[in-house]
Nucleic acid binder design. Sequence first.
DNA 1: TCATTGATTTCA
DNA 2: GAAATCAATGAT
Length: 171
Amino acid sequence: MMGNKVDSGFFLMDVLEVAPRLLGKIITIRDDEDIVKRYRISEVEAYRGEEDKACHASKGRTERNDVMYLEGGHVYVYLIYGMYWMLNIVTGKTGNPQAVLIRGVEGYGGPGKLTRIMNIDRSFYGEDLNTSKRIWIEEGEKLKYVQTPRINIDYAGEFWKNKPWRYIVTT
DNA sequence: TCATTGATTTCA
DNA sequence: GAAATCAATGAT
């Protein structure tokens, strides 16, 4: 059954609006063998602009975070700890570096595990969710969730570390 | 709690 | 150039 792709305007809202609304939506991947797989989003984290010390854009625009400065709807992928690809969705308007980290989908918790299962790597960097033929987001049901502080951002300082910008679907 | 792991970033 | 850092994970 084919779901409806989300409207491109959805990704242009502020990251704090987009993050909770992504819960329950479907990440859809078409692989090299033309097989389409769907994953329901269950956990995300929001990273919000240069002022957010936990955000990769907190020290300005670099080669790595460049795509965060583009219009919402692009895909931001990067390697962490030399082993794990992280999947992020850029949000907000052009020049406003925000992104949502996909931390979990139904059946698979953990951002590094997801990308391994979905076969997501560097080649997805900069993909446009509105036009890409191999990754996009489909509408899903609205789910209840709780908020907690973000994980593994001790370097960001107490103020930013304590922001409850991690969103988890409740069962 | 600790080793893994290497691209990116930071410091010189 | 060299050194430090890091949106994590799995084993101990």
